[in-house]
Design a protein around this nucleic acid. Structure first.
Lengths: 342, 342
DNA sequence: AACCTCTTTGCATCCGAATGCAAAGGTGTT
DNA sequence: AACACCTTTGCATTCGGATGCAAAGAGGTT
């Protein structure tokens, strides 16, 4: 029996650090060190190894590496797939910022807490380094991640009863500003288009609006509930208009857009001449010339940046207490609102 | 020196198959087999192991598993992050279909071939099982993946000189139908809003339109080039209208929307009364009441399904020759076009 | 009871890279 | 030349699960 001779790695087989080591005439550890920044390696050896690596097309196997380092370089991002254009914007911003920091995004579309259950397991199986949740995640599921010491950053959502890392856009000032301006402009009859029952941001936004209104001694003339989607905005139009409001505040831009379209197309009303419409989020499509929505814009780019930064911090120091990072929203004056004519 | 006693895995340490094996009093292999569907295991043992696993909160480590099985369960999806709402739709569809088939999506936003270079390396490092490219990917980069035997499915794009697996939406019939109807409706003065120079679909679409036109002996009265974004559509409006077309065909919906908005808002024109506008893609926002775009819709859901299916096939049989799967587009009659009044 | 067959189980090894430790090499001082 | 000290290198082991193979067990037949 002849001694086992390792074949030269053909195109079919992936070159390993051993292959590179053999070709360069060094040990496998040396190869490993060459690909680890800051490791102890002489320039001469690095050159030799790199030459061999290039020749074999060698790239370190990230999975094998994470097995031993306990760092996968993977981040899970949870977003809703529902047709709210807010999510793609957040997702792409997050992905870009993570890429800049050498992390890859595992994407999960989560439209219910039931979906999230699977995700929590998968996240665990894949040794994901951290999670950004911009969608459904129950307290139990969150705690399951906490128990497993997987850092989670909540994106514009949080739990009342559990402490967590949170990046959120505070719309309080902007909302008050919006209401104050509208009242100053003569508006007294406000209609509200709320978000779905369990949306925390939705509640917060509408609470802010109501607080600002009641500061002026004003009660909304009508309310309706939507699901953040375009269609639900359109659907709410008739109900809301029944009370003859002069202005409508929607809990997000998508619904505001649906609302505007329905008002104009189906109800033959002019926006803002007959009724003003404002939204929340500041999504790109809300600023299309057809809408030019007055809205309370979240600084999505900076939020994504902050979320990524916070998560990376957590990876290094698990101990520190949770952080709630607040960023301010900005009131965008669009052409969908106007003062009441005297 | 006392013999090394393995501590009971605390909450801090992740339970491994060895931990489960010890607790259940069986071998590690048995545990492994319990989590492999179709493996040879007696019901009695499976029950014992599962009980122990549940007790320890054990979940197999997907990274360790893929190290030996050569299957990571990861798929890379390449999309552009540019504000073309077509991509999020494709992305979410793909993600959902992959999830249903037990694969996870690694998301890469790729806005240039330079970006794609990094992606190709990363894909290799992470032992990604396959790639779906709906964005930039050079022939060289594609071939680099081919050489490494990583299956790639091109989503609505392809190379002229290299064979590859492709899922594409054929707009030929729908485009001809659109043009025929418009000509039948009395339109003779067509303007074209083209996509960016290197977009293959863009070229194909416009080639189809031009072919259909020339079949009627018609030459476009004006052309402009955009970048598929909303703003570029708006920007092209003045140029295109200079030649007084009665109808404009845009290479995608985003540009058509920008165009419509600019025509209405800035140029005080009515669509479709003064000029008709049609697009390609069939994205959700194009069907908002403000636009009701006449468009040539891609069956995105079925395309995503087909792409996922095709990729999964490729994972099992590397040998078979490449497949080009064609799906037909559908002409959507919106309110953005109208026959010319006689 | 002896024998055969089919199913279960455990052993040992492997996947590919990282790293603590000790050995080897290099530089400088006296 | 001898010694100390710092850098570079290699060895051996580790991460956690999958799997071929042989041994053990279960069930059936004569």
């Amino acid at each position: 029996m002849s001694p086992p001779v390792k074949p030269v790695p053909s195109a079919k087989t992936r070159a390993t650090s051993y292959d590179v080591a053999r070709l360069a005439g060094v040990s496998q550890s040396a190869v490993s060190r060459c690909f680890k920044p800051g490791a102890s390696i002489s320039p001469k050896m690095r050159a030799r190894v790199m030459e061999a690596a290039k020749q074999l097309g060698y790239q370190p196997n990230a999975l094998a590496r994470s097995l031993i380092t306990k760092r996968s370089g993977l981040v899970a991002v949870l977003v809703a797939s529902t047709m709210n254009f807010y999510y793609p914007e957040v997702l792409f911003q997050l992905t870009q910022h993570f890429a800049e920091n050498g992390m890859r995004v595992l994407l999960f579309t989560v439209d219910s807490e039931a979906d999230a259950d699977t995700v929590v397991d998968t996240v665990w199986q894949y040794s994901v380094d951290g999670v950004i949740s911009a969608s459904h995640l129950s307290r139990t599921q969150f705690e399951r991640l906490q128990d497993r010491h997987i850092p989670v950053v909540m994106f514009n959502r949080w739990f009342d009863d559990v402490s967590s890392d949170v990046i959120w856009a505070d719309s309080d000032n902007a909302a008050r500003e919006l209401i104050d301006e509208q009242v100053l402009g003569g508006h007294r009859r406000f209609a509200l288009l709320l978000g779905p029952e369990l949306s925390m941001v939705g509640h917060a936004r509408m609470a802010q609006v109501k607080a600002a209104l009641s500061h002026h001694g004003i009660e909304p003339v009508s309310e309706a509930v939507g699901d953040y989607g375009y269609a639900s905005g359109a659907q709410a139009a008739e109900t809301l208009m029944a009370a003859k409001p002069t202005t409508i505040i929607a809990a997000n831009d998508m619904m505001a857009m649906g609302l505007m379209d329905h008002l104009r197309t189906e109800m033959n009303m002019r926006v803002p001449d007959d009724v003003s419409v404002a939204g929340f989020d500041g999504i790109a499509s809300g600023q299309f010339a057809a809408y030019q929505l007055t809205t309370i814009r979240q600084p999505i780019g900076r939020m994504a940046d902050a979320a990524v930064t916070l998560l990376l911090q957590r990876l290094n120091r698990d101990d520190v207490s949770h952080e709630r990072r607040r960023l301010d929203c900005l009131l965008i004056h669009g052409a969908s609102t106007t003062p009441l004519q005297p």
